[in-house]
Design a protein around this nucleic acid. Structure first.
Lengths: 201, 201
DNA sequence: CTAGCCATGTAATCCGTTACATGATTGG
DNA sequence: CCAATCATGTAACGGATTACATGGCTAG
């Protein structure tokens, strides 16, 4: 009844912020290079947009977790080089040691599938086939990344960790691919004896 | 160069809206029951909050895709019963037939792992072990749901489709679980010969 | 000359959760 | 009587993408 109190009630989910902090920690200095890193190395389990990165970078400076030295060399486009402060390093370490939160993921194909009863089976089948192909390509891409990683001497410190992340992506995608085969089979089973209700459509 | 035109440039990602439309399509009539359905049946690949459901429901009515009949029976809490209009049914069918968009998912564990080089291996190992346990529990939960589904006569139309979604969840989680074993093994390999840089912490 | 990469940034908009606020009915 | 379940809704916040705006350097 009185309610309305301004409780600071356990802040949560600052993922992107710590992603940026982490990339600063690995020595990336510009917003641009962070975006690149996410796109090329983290793409199958993370994403980031400039619309978040640059504001976060400025926040970090405001809060004393990072420093920014603008670099105005002639013959170079102006750029801001960011670096972690000790305080930033500390927060990063603290976050790294905490158990990760797992945010629930949304899988639109499965959502549609849950309404599958109202859809002609041919369409559902096509969706599953397309998804299988998407998975196959993703698995291939992971295999390629893995091969590349293994032939790179400079990354030896990061290598085993990056390898793990790629293998997780590959394992998950491969499982989904296999599941598609299963699902298609199950669907063919329905199709034989089944009355699909989309006929009323 | 001319740009600046007010293009209606291909609207995207209306996932939750269509989830609601779909649930209307399967005969769910109240916001409350939709939330329940998501929580009990779709939970491992979708989520929904009242904060979205109720506003969406009102929007749908405004746009003529659904109707709302408030029901004020004595001895019953007031509730609004929503139903699809033909126009709503049409939009739902159109969406169901479209190939799903796959939004990239974020996996915080993998993000932390990508910074693993800066973390004591003991901590990383613990994270992986915890994740393995989470996966194991999820796999078990899926197995239970599957068993329940198979013993339910009323759901025979939805049954094969719901089964598919559960099996996907199970397959993915099982793959992740297996991957954890792999990753832990790889980690033990590093640990033997490895210099972890967190020593400078 | 021009495409592509380097590089930074903002504003609009959308999407989604959380917390709050309310309250009736039912079963133990 | 108390807890659970049914039931509806809003406000504040937080988070993320998209589109726009700008512009220099380099290699072909």
């Amino acid at each position: 009844m009185e309610g309305l109190a301004l409780s600071p009630p356990a802040r949560k989910r600052l993922g992107s912020r710590f992603a940026v902090l982490g990339m600063l920690g690995m020595g990336l200095e510009t917003g641009y290079s962070m975006k690149k890193h996410v796109e090329t190395n983290l793409r199958h389990f993370w994403s980031a947009s400039y619309g978040r990165i640059y504001p976060i970078l400025r926040e970090l400076v405001t809060e004393g977790l990072a420093t920014c030295e603008p670099e105005a060399k002639p013959g170079r486009r102006r750029r801001n080089r960011y670096k972690l402060t000790p305080k930033g390093q500390e927060q990063l370490n603290a976050w790294l040691a905490e158990p990760p939160e797992h945010q629930p993921h949304r899988h639109e194909l499965l959502l549609k599938l849950s309404f599958g009863r109202y859809v002609p089976t041919a369409i559902t089948k096509q969706m599953l086939e397309e998804h299988r192909e998407v998975c196959r390509l993703a698995v291939d891409a992971c295999a390629k990344m893995e091969a590349q990683l293994q032939g790179d001497a400079k990354l030896h410190r990061d290598q085993p960790y990056w390898l793990m992340t790629i293998r997780c992506g590959r394992a998950v995608r491969a499982a989904e691919q296999a599941w598609c085969d299963d699902a298609i089979e199950l669907l063919d089973g329905i199709d034989g004896q089944g009355s699909d209700e989309a006929s009323e459509m």
